[in-house]
């Protein structure tokens, strides 16, 4: 009985230490990190529950190190921060170029931070973006766009850390910009020896195909003078012995070409057209990358586009 009591007491000792009242906590929504005049600026965007729905309050801290700036935030806070629900971290380009090391160190050191928040950068001033956060939910914007369009993708902290540590891979960053008084998705960028390189829309799509990020994206292909659109259903890319093999299952969603769809051979023709165009795009992208991404050693590319009968536009004709 004594032993049992001792075990119970030992087990219960850690208890009260962690007690929190929900109303004394401020829920952190996102971080923005910038550096100006040799000082880190950490913006912590918290959601204030209550009166106004989803009102985002930005608290700012400055310091010589990123940790110092984090501590300085406490000068303007009346609540404790609850970091566990961090959605994304917005990092300025300057930091990616020069001080990525410190930021990754800070983000990976704090055990209370989750590991799956998104990383995003911007062409604009970080201050400006922060002003627009109440209007637009940035992480939803990224999620929807990457799911539907394929010109951007979701970079989470885990991937960034993995790329950073492996030293072989260069990380491609999604960007957001202010356009017409709204936050919109910008081009993907990567850095080659501190030189910023932008990916065009075609290159971004190729990048997403290679890195298996295709979800429900739309691929528009030229047929003569007109176009047809395919919606991706399944995608799989594999790099083996310097060969890139891509298989994409699609459905036809928009069709303006002259070929007769009632003809069985037309679908094969469309598949070949799509395969060829995507293959050309992939070659173009790989050759275009100066310090190459994962595609450095790729020599041969094999693409296989399949148009499924099910769900195809005017499927009854086929």
């Amino acid at each position: 009985m004594k032993k049992l009591l001792i075990i119970l007491i030992i087990l219960l000792l850690p208890g009260c230490y962690n007690y929190k009242e929900l109303k004394d906590l401020s829920i952190v929504y996102s971080f923005s990190i910038d550096k100006k005049e040799n000082e880190y600026i950490l913006y912590v965007n918290t959601i204030k529950p209550g009166e106004e729905k989803n009102k985002i309050i930005t608290n700012t801290g400055k310091g010589k190190t990123i940790m110092a700036s984090a501590r300085n935030i406490n000068n303007s806070l009346d609540l404790n921060l609850l970091n566990s629900n961090l959605e994304y971290v917005l990092i300025s380009k300057e930091i990616i170029k020069n001080d990525l090391n410190e930021v990754i160190d800070y983000l990976s050191r704090d055990t209370r931070l989750p590991f799956n928040f998104l990383i995003v950068t911007t062409d604009d001033n970080i201050d400006t973006i922060n002003n627009y956060l109440t209007k637009t939910s940035l992480e939803n914007l990224l999620k929807i766009s990457s799911n539907k369009n394929g010109y951007t993708y979701l970079l989470d902290f885990k991937t960034l850390l993995h790329n950073y540590l492996s030293k072989e891979k260069e990380t491609v960053y999604p960007t957001v910009n202010i356009e017409k008084d709204k936050i919109t998705i910008g081009n993907l960028i990567y850095f080659n020896n501190k030189e910023e390189i932008k990916l065009s829309k075609e290159e971004a799509l190729s990048f997403n195909i290679i890195s298996n990020n295709i979800k429900n994206n739309l691929i528009t292909i030229k047929c003569g003078n007109k176009y047809f659109s395919l919606e991706a259903l399944k995608s799989k890319s594999k790099i083996k012995n310097n060969n890139l093999k891509t298989y994409i299952e699609t459905k036809l969603v928009s069709y303006e070409c002259d070929y007769d769809l009632n003809n069985i051979n037309t679908i094969k023709l469309l598949e070949n057209l799509a395969s060829k165009e995507i293959k050309d795009n992939l070659y173009y992208t790989i050759n275009n990358m100066k310090k190459d991404y994962i595609a450095t050693k790729i020599k041969n590319i094999e693409t296989n586009i399949k148009i499924t009968k099910e769900g195809t536009l005017r499927g009854d004709l086929l």
Binding site: Y19, K20, E21, I27, I47, P49, G50, L82, S84, N85
Partner: peptide, 18 residues
């Protein structure tokens, strides 16, 4: 709520908190 609010999904947490 008192010891592990980290476990609650974000929208629900905001809701509870408000």
């Amino acid at each position: 709520i008192n010891y592990d609010p980290e476990m609650i999904p974000f929208p629900l947490l905001i809701n509870f908190s408000s």
